[in-house]
Nucleic acid binder design. Structure first.
Lengths: 145, 145
DNA sequence: CTTTTTGCAAAGCGTTTGCATTGAA
DNA sequence: TTCAATGCAAACGCTTTGCAAAAAG
């Protein structure tokens, strides 16, 4: 099942970068900070659009490659989507997702009952299960007006 | 929650096409048949590669557009992925998915316990929930050798 | 016959790669 | 000073669109 805890501050972030021998660049800090500031699991381009206002020189590639690097070292997760661009989540603790089918936003929610679900026997025989998540789909408050 | 039942045969399929005023073409029948034959939730291109051996003239576009049409009328579902091409599922009954992180195969499984899960209160207030599914990730038997 | 569907080609996104330049350590 | 990271450009893969020809009803 999912392990590890959410990194809430930039100090912890730089510490983890050092452990993985990743250089700490202003871009990496800014990208990680934007990820923490958002709660809708942004795509690379969403983060790029925000950051290029502040850092006129930043490139989409850096944002995208950095997010993939973060995923590789386990501080962000690529979340499930139904087509379209990859979406990223800085929350690597045990949690679940709800997708709005209208506006595409993805929100986290928590449920002890969901966390406690056992993996069915038939699955255990076929798969070595690594993670478990409940995905809800629906229409959010904003989209219902 | 999910409703509707799996369409097991081509007769039912043609009936539903008629109800939606979709013309019944050899391509549509072949595409739907291939979807039923597969249990790994193929991408459009996977189905295209299979069908072009049999129907030398079929185009990728037809396969792709047809799958999207099927999704629109509700006889197939676009399933969750973690990047890459859309994957399609002809099983629109209540079920759950397990993904192999190595080979990318997606398999259905069933669990009464999972089906019975209630939507948490906090979510009900924010979302009108339409569907609910448990997503497991792991390594399948084949990939473990 | 009418209208939808098909196949093809081109365009549109999102992602990935190679490479010279820049910057962190 | 060294080596990783960045920015840029080009390539690649998946998806979508417009349109003339073909096929279904």
């Amino acid at each position: 099942m999912q392990t590890g805890s959410r990194i809430d501050n930039i100090q912890e972030f730089t510490q983890i970068c050092r452990e993985h021998r990743l250089k700490i660049t202003p871009q990496r800090i800014a990208i990680y900070r934007e990820l923490l500031n958002s709660d809708t699991h942004p795509a690379a381009d969403t983060i790029y659009q925000i950051l290029k206002k502040e850092y006129t020189n930043i490139s989409f590639d850096t944002v995208n490659r950095t997010l993939l690097t973060f995923a590789k070292i386990g501080i962000v997760e690529v979340v499930e989507t139904f087509g379209g661009a990859k979406r990223f989540d800085p929350n690597v603790t045990n949690h679940h997702h709800i997708h709005c089918s209208q506006c595409g936003k993805i929100l986290d929610f928590y449920s002890r009952a969901y966390d406690k679900l056992a993996v069915p026997d038939g699955v255990y025989e076929q798969f070595q299960v690594v993670s478990k998540r409940v995905i809800l789909k629906g229409i959010c408050k904003d989209c219902r007006q």
